[in-house]
């Protein structure tokens, strides 16, 4: 899909929001739209999704099936979650049984089962956002447009976004996502489009200099061997800690199977954890003392094939100091697992 010479303003004689915009995104690609509040990120996304029509220029080769997740899901509607999603599936062209299957799948996948019969206005912001995400995925989209998809999500749900993005990419779709919270560290390999002063510029990919942080849960007995293997493979082990609480198993789509630590499959695998603050080369590997049956959690950096270069942020205190907690159901350790954080340095 391409935006060719696109200009947009909302009213005649109003200032231009976007000028002379030329961007393209192909199948299997993900682009992150960055920029300050009010610069036109959502406008760009809505142009791509087909919500807005360019004042000048054109959008060509837009895929036939587009999924758009707006920044705020319109929950003020007199339907239950199940009825709404089924109806949207039918609107998207699915037959009755197909819509039912798709709704069941995504309700289960996004943890909405207990909300199936709940009316939309009664949902919390985060749960309503999940419904918004589900409606965009009922038909596998050729283009998925996510406007601040992490907004209002809890820790577990934030991990789902990169999984969903990975599945869309694997299916040959393209993904556009806006972000102002640094959450796009979860999308390693994404192209970065920066919107500023009405123009869109694509930043060069950070390439090999980028890093990502992965946490692994391994059996306690294998800690020393795993650390040794990781270091031998060139990874930078940041720390070893006690697994206070682990989020659900996640595995970013762009991450190869956890062959770096063969024992990782024996225990739940945590999501990426961006620790904060400078980390000395060959950083400290500390024993966490008594370990639970789930084994200690080991933070490792450099385990991704394609780093994002996006800001990472503070971990749970050992290296990065305390961080503001985000809404989560688990213990502080679980919250920390999902927080974005400042730069990670080698």
């Amino acid at each position: 899909m391409r935006l060719e010479g696109v200009w947009l303003r909302y009213q005649r004689r109003a200032p231009w929001v976007l000028r002379e915009t030329d961007v393209r995104i192909g199948p299997g690609e993900v682009a992150v739209v960055l920029g300050r509040n009010g610069v036109g990120k959502s406008t760009l996304l809505q142009l791509a999704a087909g919500v807005l029509r360019p004042t000048r220029g054109r959008v060509v080769d837009r895929p036939g099936v587009v999924g758009w997740v707006p920044e705020r899901f319109p929950a003020d509607q007199p339907f239950t979650v199940g009825a709404y999603l089924t109806a949207m599936g039918r609107v998207a062209g699915l037959s009755g049984p197909e819509a039912d299957r798709a709704v069941r799948h995504w309700i289960d996948r996004l943890g909405l089962i207990r909300f199936h019969g709940v009316r939309l206005p009664q949902l919390s912001k985060g749960t309503a956002q999940k419904v918004g995400l589900a409606q965009a995925l009922l038909r596998p989209p050729g283009l998925l447009v996510l406007d601040e998809p992490w907004e209002g999500f809890d820790a577990t749900a934030r991990e789902l976004v990169p999984e969903v993005v990975g599945e869309v990419l694997a299916g040959g779709g393209a993904v556009l996502v806006s972000d102002h919270r640094g959450e796009t560290v979860r999308l390693p390999g994404a192209r970065h489009w920066t919107v500023a002063d009405g123009t869109v510029a694509e930043e060069a990919p950070a390439g090999d200099a980028a890093v990502a942080v992965v946490e692994l849960a391994i059996p306690a007995a294998g800690v020393a061997a795993a650390v040794a293997r990781l270091r031998a493979a060139g990874h930078h082990v940041l720390r070893v800690r006690e697994p206070a609480a682990l989020p659900s198993t996640t595995r970013p789509a762009s991450v190869p199977p956890a062959d770096a630590v063969p024992t990782a499959d024996a225990a739940p695998t945590a999501g990426s954890v961006p620790p904060g603050g400078p980390v000395p080369p060959g950083g400290p590997v500390s024993s966490a003392g008594p370990v639970s049956s789930a084994g200690p959690v080991l933070g490792s950096e450099g385990g991704l094939e394609r780093g994002s270069g996006a800001p990472a942020d503070a971990g749970n205190g050992e290296l990065g100091g305390p961080t503001p907690s985000s809404p989560a159901r688990g213990a502080p350790a679980e919250r920390d697992l999902t927080r974005p954080a400042p730069e990670v340095t080698r």
């Binding site: 087909g50 758009w68 707006p70 319109p74 003020d76 509607q77």
Partner: peptide, 15 residues
Amino acid sequence: EPDVQRRLAQVVLGP
């Protein structure tokens, strides 16, 4: 219908 829901329908079905 909320404005955003109308736009969602537009994305799915076309204007």
